[in-house]
Amino acid sequence: MEFEQKVRPDELGGRVRAVRVAARMTQEVAATRLGMSRTTMVAIEAGKRAISSSELRKIAELFDVHESELLDVTTPMLDMAVEFRSNVTEAESADEVMVASMLNRMARSVVQLETLVGFPSSPLDMPGVMLSRDEPLEQQAEDAALALRARLGLGIGSIQDLNGLMESELGVRIFERALPSKVSGAKAFSDSAGGFVLLNAKHPNYRRRVTAAHELAHILLRQQGVSVHFANQSFDSREEKFCDVFACCLLMPAAAVRKKANELKKIVGKFTVRELLTMTLYFNVSMEALVRRMVALNLVPNGMYERLKADGFALKHQDIVREELGLSPEPPAFTARTMLLAMAAHKKELLSEQQIASMLELDLVSARRALEDHGESEHESALELVP
């Protein structure tokens, strides 16, 4: 058959195994649902048995993928192993599978876009981190954050566009899509393909920034594969604790937090909740994140966040201060590198709007609007760069 001639059995078997693992299904369960023996399933995944067209159709239906995804020889094999959590509810397990599969597909799509347009991503350009058991975890996180800031030339100032820095300066591809509310985000990494981060577009910007910094730390640690992270998830492992502390240190350097707090106190004459809220806007983080950072730096007493929460302080008070300071609710929209690649592929008629929407996990209307909004104006003229 045609697909048997184009796709090697070992490659097709590897893809079948990848979608099965991503669906969190054992070989035995998959074989039963496909109406075959487990030994047959093992042989298929090992590339020792050819797959018939009817079997391929059943496999695609069972794992909710298109047959073309399994057969397209031009699509890179990027299905990275998923690191599933053990203690999850049935609902969380389903969310984990869905988000991991989405990120795997989008990572594969972006690499395909880069290949089509002839503009591969730059190699991952960020220092790796190896955790030591001989040094305090908090200090290692602070040192890693300062090292990365030095690499980016940021000093101790606030980071206005973390996504843009991660994508343009570090070579990490960023996606923001609507995910189940309990999911904060996910990361994918492999030595060959680099890093990918998926953020929950349903969450407010300040939460997405902390999640992005947390996922970035996983890539700093060079953790292979895909992992999905949930809101209010307890961090038991040293790696997760490191990533949690690193995110705070990256967004709120100790020197900057102390400097800003003292500066506001000198200007106003005292440090009140209003000044605290002003600092949340300066660093673009939640009150909880800032207060817990200030507690760790011994700037405010333990229990401060719980006390403020009990007194009823919430986002509406932050909005009042934001309005008084004349700040916009969200930073300016960032034109993602991925969308630029999609525009280039569409302009060259390499991909249709429908194909781009499918690849980037967008509905057709959103994809069309994005292409139109970021498209080249007929009134724009090309500028020549001096060689």
Rank of each mutant, 00 (worst) to 15 (best):
V111A: 14
L113P: 00
A94P: 00
V110R: 11
D134C: 02
A100K: 06
L103P: 01
V97Q: 07
R108K: 15
S121Y: 01
R133V: 11
M98L: 13
T115Y: 08
L124M: 05
M106D: 04
R105K: 15
D125I: 00
V110D: 06
Q112Y: 15
N104H: 03
M130K: 14
N104P: 05
G128L: 10
M106H: 06
V99N: 01
L124R: 03
A94S: 13
P123C: 02
E135H: 14
M130N: 12
A107E: 12
E135Y: 10
V99I: 05
M130C: 09
L137R: 12
P120L: 11
D95E: 15
A107L: 08
R108F: 06
R105N: 13
D134G: 05
P123Y: 03
G118P: 06
R108S: 13
P136L: 13
F119S: 11
V97Y: 04
D125K: 00
E114T: 09
G128Y: 10
Q112E: 10
Q112D: 05
D125E: 09
G118H: 03
S101C: 03
S109T: 04
G128C: 04
G118K: 06
E96C: 03
V129F: 02
L124N: 01
L103T: 02
V110W: 01
L137K: 06
V110E: 12
P123K: 12
E96P: 01
E96D: 12
D134N: 12
V99W: 00
F119C: 07
V117Y: 07
P127V: 01
M102C: 02
L113T: 02
T115P: 00
T115E: 13
P123F: 00
M102I: 08
M102W: 11
A94L: 15
M98N: 08
V97F: 07
A94K: 11
M106V: 12
V111Q: 09
E135D: 12
M130R: 15
P127W: 02
E114L: 09
M130D: 11
F119P: 00
E96S: 14
D95Q: 14
P127F: 06
L137M: 15
P123T: 02
D134W: 09
L103H: 05
R108L: 10
S122T: 04
L103A: 07
P120W: 07
S122G: 04
R108P: 06
L116I: 14
M130A: 14
D95T: 07
D134S: 13
G118F: 01
S109Y: 08
P120H: 13
L103Y: 09
L113Q: 08
E135T: 15
P123L: 04
S132C: 03
V117K: 08
P127D: 10
T115F: 01
V129W: 02
M106C: 05
M102Y: 02
S121L: 06
E135R: 15
V99S: 05
M98Q: 11
